[in-house]
Design a protein around this nucleic acid. Structure first.
Length: 168
DNA sequence: GCCAACGTTGGC
DNA sequence: GCCAACGTTGGC
C-alpha cells in the first residue's frame, strides 16, 4: 500500500449563477452524495487540470476548501475515488463549462471523482491558516488562484493537528 | 515568441 | 463591489 498523496480543492459554497446555472457546492453537498461521490468537473485552468490528470490516484486525500464566500477556509476531507479522466462537461454546448476547444478525441480538461470522508472537527478559516508559520509555503497562500493544488505531508499533518486545537 | 490587453479568481 | 494577482489571448 503506497502512501496517499495530499491535495487541496476549492469549491464555492455560496450560490452564484454561471450561465444561468447555480454552481454552489459545499462540503455538506458532498456529504449528501455519500458513497456515490461526485465528479469534480468544471476546472478550466491548465495547471489545475494537469494535477488531476497526472498526479491524483485513487485513495489520495484532499482538503475541501470553501472559496469566494463570506468566510473562506478548509471545511473537510475527501478521498479521490477515481483518478483523472476527461471532463465530459466540456463537450456539452448546454453545459455552463462547455469549451469548444475540447472534444472526446483530444480532451483538453480532466476531472477526478471524489467522495466525502468527513468534516474537519472545526472549520479552519483562511485567516487562521495564514497566521501559521508552518504553513507559510502552502500553495494556498502562495498561489491563491490555483483551484487544485498539492499539500505536502508535513502541511497535511500540521492541519490535522490544528483542527484539534481550540481557537485561541 | 513577446507582451499588452483582457478576463477571471477570490479575498476583503 | 473593489481590486490585486495572475492566467490567457491575440496582434505583431
Amino acid at each position: 500500500m503506497t502512501e496517499p498523496r495530499y491535495f487541496l480543492m476549492k469549491a464555492e459554497p455560496e450560490s452564484r449563477l454561471e450561465k444561468g446555472v447555480d454552481v454552489a457546492f459545499s462540503i455538506n453537498d458532498l456529504a449528501a452524495r455519500g458513497s456515490d461521490g461526485e465528479p469534480w468537473d468544471g476546472v478550466r485552468n491548465a495547471e489545475a487540470s494537469k494535477i488531476m490528470r497526472t498526479e491524483m490516484r485513487e485513495g489520495d486525500l484532499a482538503l475541501f476548501y470553501h472559496s469566494n464566500c463570506k468566510v473562506p477556509g478548509a471545511a473537510g476531507v475527501m478521498r479521490i475515488k477515481r483518478a483523472g479522466y476527461p471532463d465530459s462537461s466540456a463537450f456539452d454546448p448546454k453545459h455552463p463549462y462547455y469549451d469548444a476547444r475540447s472534444d472526446p478525441e483530444r480532451p483538453r480538461w480532466y476531472r477526478v471523482d471524489v467522495e466525502y470522508v468527513r468534516h474537519l472537527r472545526r472549520f479552519l478559516p483562511l485567516r487562521e491558516l495564514r497566521a501559521c508559520p508552518e504553513l507559510a509555503d502552502m500553495q494556498l497562500l502562495r498561489r491563491p488562484q490555483l483551484s487544485v493544488q498539492r499539500v505536502t505531508p508535513a502541511q497535511w499533518d500540521f492541519i490535522m493537528d490544528l483542527e484539534l486545537k481550540d481557537v485561541a
